Amino acid sequence: MPTRTQQQPQGCLTVLLKLIGIDLGKGQQKHPYRLRDDFLSAAELSFFRVLQQSVKEDLVICPKVRLADLFMVPQAEGSQAWRNKIDRKHVDFLLCEPATMRPRLGIELDDSSHAKQKRQERDQLVEAVFEAAQLPLLRVPATRTYSVLEITEQIHLNLAQGENSPLVEPQFHQGVPICPKCGIKMVERTASKGTRRGTRFWGCQNYPQCRETVPV
């Protein structure tokens, strides 16, 4: 049993610090994180269920995907400024191929907040980003009810448009190919594994964010 002199009374400051997660007795701060209950809003959850009926197992639905995780900016002067433009922005839903998780279609659910000027400026930027990256973007007005058939038709129409994007042939500069996606010089590499092990090829300097290749 500790003696009276060994017991340290807790002051008001110590009690207040504990309430906010700081315990001076342990010498470390407790992390204050808690699980959010609104990962998807009621409107987003309602539309998510419609998407499940529309795509079934043909596509994977990814909610709230950061644009910075979806798009890249090739290394060049001023590229950081372009990265900053998409920082802290996301697309409501992203449809991906199940086998490869290759992005196929972005979907924005437009509620009443999209009528505000600041929001419209943000929407114009997002549309420009998707267009530059040649990834289709479908905008759907938020309503109380949706037609699964209509949503399915819109998804298939946008997917078809994405598949018809023209292929860009690589250009060469002094015998070195320019990456058709990033517009920068490619570097010569040698496959280290797989059936093409030992084969030489040109690869993008932005690998693995860009996996464009050109045969040597």
Rank of each mutant, 00 (worst) to 15 (best):
Q171W: 00
Q154I: 01
N158D: 09
T195G: 03
R189G: 01
E131T: 11
Q124V: 10
R119H: 12
L157N: 12
A133G: 03
L125F: 10
K181N: 13
I178Y: 02
R122S: 13
D110H: 13
L125M: 14
G162K: 04
K116G: 08
V148Q: 11
D123P: 03
I107T: 07
A160V: 05
K193P: 03
K185V: 05
F172S: 08
C182W: 09
Q174P: 00
P141R: 07
R139T: 12
R122I: 07
G194V: 10
A128V: 00
V126T: 14
Q120N: 08
T152S: 15
E163N: 09
T190V: 15
E150M: 09
I184A: 12
R122F: 05
E153G: 02
A128Y: 00
F172H: 13
L157W: 06
I155Y: 05
T145R: 15
Q174R: 12
A128F: 00
P136E: 11
F130N: 08
P177E: 02
V140T: 04
K185A: 15
K181T: 14
H156T: 10
F172K: 08
E169K: 12
L157H: 13
V148M: 04
L109S: 03
A142W: 01
S192V: 14
E153Y: 03
R189K: 15
D110S: 03
A142R: 01
R119F: 08
L125V: 06
S165F: 06
K181W: 04
P180Q: 08
H173S: 14
C182A: 11
F172N: 07
Q154F: 03
T143F: 01
H156M: 11
S192T: 14
A160S: 14
V126A: 02
S165H: 10
D110W: 05
V176R: 05
N164V: 02
S113W: 05
T195Y: 02
L135K: 11
M186N: 06
G194P: 09
L125D: 06
S147P: 07
E121C: 04
P170D: 03
H114A: 07
F130H: 08
Q124T: 10
L159C: 10
Q134S: 12
R119Q: 15
A142H: 01
C179F: 03
V187A: 12
E163T: 07
Q171E: 15
E163S: 10
I184M: 12
I178C: 04
E150W: 02
K181Q: 14
M186Q: 07
P180E: 05
V168F: 00
V148F: 01
K181V: 15
G194R: 05
S113N: 13
V129R: 01
P166V: 04
C179R: 02
Q134G: 00
E169N: 08
I184E: 14
G175C: 09
L138V: 05
R139E: 11
K185D: 13
T190G: 07
K118A: 15
E108Y: 00
A115V: 11
D110P: 02
I107W: 00
L157S: 11
Q134P: 00
L167D: 04
L125N: 06
R189I: 08
S165C: 08
T145L: 09
E188Q: 14
T152G: 09
A133W: 01
P177N: 04
K193E: 12
H114R: 10
Q171Y: 01
Q124K: 13
L109Y: 01
A191W: 04
E131F: 02
L137W: 01
R189D: 03
E127L: 03
I184W: 04
I184V: 15
S112A: 15
Q117S: 12
